[in-house]
Simulated assay, not measured.
Amino acid sequence: MTMANSKTATVYRMVMPGHVCPYGLKMLDLLERQGFSVDDRHLATREETEAFKQKHDVKTTPQTFINGQRIGGYDDLREYFGKSVQKDGDTSYQPVIAIFGIALLLGLAISWYVFETIFTVQALEWFVSFSMVLLALQKLQDVRSFSTMFLNYDLLAARWVPYGFVYPFAEGLAGVLMAAHALPAISVPLSLFIGTIGAVSVFKAVYIDKRELKCACVGGSSNVPLGFVSLTENLIMIGMGLWMGAKALGWMAM
Rank of each mutant, 00 (worst) to 15 (best):
K87W: 10
D88T: 03
D88H: 12
D90H: 10
I97A: 05
A98E: 08
A98M: 14
G101N: 05
I102E: 00
I102A: 11
I102P: 00
A103K: 00
L104F: 09
L106P: 02
L106A: 13
L106N: 07
A109E: 05
S111W: 05
S111F: 04
W112C: 03
W112P: 02
Y113I: 15
V114G: 01
F115N: 15
F115I: 00
E116Y: 03
F119L: 14
T120F: 04
V121R: 08
Q122V: 13
A123M: 01
A123P: 05
L124H: 04
L124T: 09
L124W: 08
W126H: 03
W126F: 07
V128Q: 07
V133A: 04
L134P: 08
Q138M: 14
K139Q: 13
L140A: 04
V143N: 12
S145G: 02
S147I: 10
L155Q: 03
L156W: 06
W160N: 05
V161K: 15
P162Y: 10
Y163I: 08
Y163V: 08
F165C: 06
F165N: 12
F165S: 13
V166Y: 12
Y167L: 13
F169C: 02
F169E: 00
G175R: 01
G175Y: 09
L177E: 10
M178T: 09
A179I: 05
A179Y: 08
A179S: 13
A180C: 14
H181T: 07
A182P: 09
